[in-house]
């Protein structure tokens, strides 16, 4: 068992447990914290996968911005306490079915992965993935998507402002 694998298993366990915590927690604040934990472990996984830039962006965008926004809204609405008993919508069959279908999906993915496990080795060429390299990609082949994304973000900002404006 290599050191890398050891670290991976540890992080994977933390990530999975955090995800399960997200699914089961009674409080929205705890759910958000579990999600932050999950994001952080994924950030470390990015480091292992030769993506340090993305790892840092992951922390600053997801943990530093998106989840803060979530927490902010949860606290603003005072909506942290989640509804206890199942509402009377009569969807009792829904949860087991969802879990069952989800498990089925996982089985399908697992089947594919296990039949192909380790068949393709990691490329021996190690690409540089620092800010410079990412920037060259962004302003090179991906210039158009990049600009489109900026428009998207602008639209999202305007949308959010319009939606929440007090009339």
């Amino acid at each position: 068992m290599t050191f890398d694998l050891f670290v991976f298993i540890g992080l994977a366990l933390i990530g999975i447990l955090a995800a399960i915590g997200l699914l089961t927690s009674r409080s929205a604040i705890y759910a958000a914290l579990f999600l932050i934990l999950n994001f952080s472990t994924v950030a470390v996984l990015y480091l292992m996968l030769n993506a340090p830039f993305l790892a840092v962006i992951q922390v600053s965008v997801y943990a530093g911005a998106i989840m803060v926004l979530f927490l902010f809204v949860i606290m603003l609405l005072g909506a942290e306490r989640l509804a206890g008993p199942e509402a009377k919508t009569g969807l009792l069959w829904q949860r087991p079915l969802a879990v069952g279908l989800g498990a089925l999906l996982l089985l399908q993915a697992g089947y594919v992965l296990i039949t192909r496990f380790g068949q393709t080795a990691v490329s021996t060429t190690v690409v540089k993935s620092g800010p410079l390299d990412i920037g060259l990609m962004l302003f090179g082949p991906y210039l158009l998507p990049f600009e489109v994304t900026s428009v998207l973000l602008l639209v999202a900002i305007v949308g959010a402002v319009v939606l929440t404006r007090n009339k």
């Binding site: 991976f8 996968l49 989640l82 989800g102 498990a103 996982l106 192909r116 380790g118």
Partner: peptide, 27 residues
């Protein structure tokens, strides 16, 4: 590690958990 299969497997697992979360939570 000279394969990324464990990462992809973890990704699939997290995805499934996310799906289940979308389908079972009401908030």
């Amino acid at each position: 590690m000279n394969t990324v299969s464990p990462f992809v497997l973890l990704s699939a697992l997290l995805f499934t958990l996310g799906v289940i979360g979308v389908l079972t939570r009401r908030n």
